[in-house]
């Protein structure tokens, strides 16, 4: 029984870390991988989704619908910001970093002014289950399932749908795609919207487990960037394996020596991976194939 408990516990901790890394990073990875834009307002899209979710719950929507609502809202906000700001800067990637950072400052400070320093959360649903001497939260299993579902859905959207084909064509050869009649600016807007909506989904689904404050997005940022940097440009070849690798490092170090060791391990892993694989795991896999 001890042994089973240990196995379940390790699997749960790995899954929990994996879910957090995947969900933190996926929105950032889509926008960076598909468009080459480094979106420093990523954390604020997460916050936006979380706040919208809590508002929706307060209006009486059930939690799953409220999360969808938060995700959708973040996606719409993302498309508006793409239209107004990011679009002007596609040829100036460094300036787009600065601009999105500005957006993030305005968003978190604006939220502070509008909604105050803190807001009451919604409480984690579903309860807990026990294995041996340990008890676990069911909701954490939902987070893990969501992480896998997001990866599967992204794969289907970008490989099996017409939009996905057009999007990849736009990324590979924008001028050629344009010449063949693809409305590339619309594709960019949708892609940015999808990235923002994924961030909003992350915020919405983590909202019941966290403190609602205007800067809540920043607690995701380190993990998000670490995962994208280790993973490289491709969501499937990069983000998923990177999250798995980092989750092993983080969960094992945290259970061995506590949170501090987990954080240090995460950052050390990034330094080592970047030194050995400058283009991340994506670069490693693609080179292997070639």
């Amino acid at each position: 029984m001890e042994f089973v408990t240990a196995i379940v516990s390790s699997a749960y901790q790995f899954g929990d870390a994996f879910a957090f890394l995947v969900l933190s990073a996926c929105g950032l990875a889509v926008i960076f991988g598909m468009m080459g834009v480094i979106n420093l307002a990523h954390g604020e899209f997460i916050m936006c989704g979380a706040y919208m979710t809590v508002f929706a719950v307060n209006w009486g929507l059930p939690l799953p619908l409220a999360i969808a609502c938060g995700s959708l809202f973040a996606g719409l906000v993302g498309m508006v910001i793409e239209r107004l700001i990011v679009r002007q800067l596609y040829s100036r990637p460094l300036d787009s970093i600065l601009a999105t950072w500005g957006v993030s400052l305005i968003a978190s400070q604006g939220t502070l002014i509008l909604f105050g320093p803190t807001m009451r959360g919604v409480g984690t649903p579903l309860g807990s289950f026990t294995v041996g001497a340990l008890s676990f939260s069911y909701y954490r299993l939902v987070l893990m399932a969501t992480a896998l579902a997001v990866l599967a859905l992204l794969y289907l959207v970008f490989t099996k749908t017409r939009f996905g084909v057009l999007a990849r064509a736009t990324i590979q050869a924008p001028h050629m795609a344009n010449a063949l009649g693809v409305d590339t600016s619309r594709i960019y807007a949708y892609t940015f919207g999808i990235g923002a909506a994924l961030a909003g989904l992350t915020g919405g689904i983590y909202a019941p487990t966290m403190t609602m404050i205007p800067t809540m997005g920043t607690t995701f940022i380190m993990e998000a960037f670490v995962t994208v940097v280790v993973g490289g440009a491709d969501v499937f070849l990069g983000t998923a394996p990177a999250a798995a690798l980092l989750a092993v490092v983080k969960a094992s170090l945290t259970s061995w020596q506590g949170q501090l060791a987990g954080q240090i391990g995460l950052l050390l892993a990034v330094i080592i991976v970047i030194r050995l694989l400058p283009k991340g795991i994506t670069g490693f896999i693609l080179k292997d194939r070639a």
């Binding site: 809540m216 607690t219 259970s255 949170q259």
Partner: peptide
């Protein structure tokens, strides 16, 4: 700034 406590709880 850490917000995830699963492992600590265990």
């Amino acid at each position: 700034g850490v917000s995830q406590f699963s492992q600590t709880i265990q």
